[in-house]
Simulated assay, not measured.
Amino acid sequence: MSKYNTSRLRQMKQGVEKIQHGKLRTNIPAGMATPGPPLGPMLGCRGINITAFCKDFNEKTKDIKEGIPLPTRVHVNPDRSYQITITKPPSMYYLKQAAGIQKGAMNPIKETAGKVTLKHIYEIAKIKQSDETLEFRSLQDICIMLISTARSLGIKVVKDLDASEYQQFLEERKVILEERKRELQELKESKMLRTG
């Protein structure tokens, strides 16, 4: 190896050592950060002390209801220190909570998973307006964004909603979901029999 190549290789190594790990973006349930997968390996490969991170995160989110998914940005410095930025839950979470459902529709064009009113959309938009990424958008733009998100989840946006009718709709939907779950389980078992 020539003298030039050796010095060039040394410069490249020094450059690699100075590279920052950048930002890590993930959703972590409030108060439930654990050193296990999937969070542990993501932090470990960046050289962060996993137990210290989990302790810091859980301490910062102790005032929030446990289990709410929080979009989290972790900026990792070269000295393995970090800064945690926690934002409000995603709009999908709020829409599902307003509709009273756990999951969106598998085929949002053909089926309706739930319903929300325009008032729900407006209230969620007011909450989301304080987000860092949406603070310069108008309330109307945020409402339009929320309506399109609701549509992609299979949630129908209506002007008015009768509580008893909606309760009946949710019960019928629960029966449909149980039936679909049973069909998927049977399909899975039949594939297992074919391969076994």
Rank of each mutant, 00 (worst) to 15 (best):
P69C: 03
V116L: 05
Y93P: 02
D141V: 01
Q140L: 06
P29N: 06
L134N: 07
L161T: 10
D162H: 08
G15S: 13
A163T: 14
E186C: 07
L134S: 11
L146V: 07
E17S: 12
Y93H: 14
Y94A: 04
E132C: 00
S91Y: 02
L153P: 02
M12W: 09
K18A: 14
Y166S: 05
L139R: 08
I101L: 12
P29K: 01
L170R: 11
E183Q: 14
L184T: 02
H21P: 04
V16H: 09
A33P: 05
K88D: 09
P38G: 05
L193V: 14
L24T: 09
K181L: 06
L184M: 13
L9S: 11
S81F: 00
S152E: 12
D63L: 09
R182Y: 11
P71N: 02
R10V: 07
Q83G: 03
I121G: 04
L24M: 11
R25W: 05
K181C: 03
K119R: 09
C45I: 11
E59P: 00
M192R: 10
E132G: 00
P35T: 06
Y166Q: 08
P38Y: 04
H75T: 15
K88H: 05
L9N: 05
K96M: 15
L177T: 08
C54I: 07
P108M: 05
P29H: 00
K23P: 00
R173P: 01
R10P: 00
E111G: 06
S190L: 15
E132T: 07
D79G: 03
S152L: 09
P90L: 10
K103M: 12
C143P: 02
E179A: 13
K174N: 13
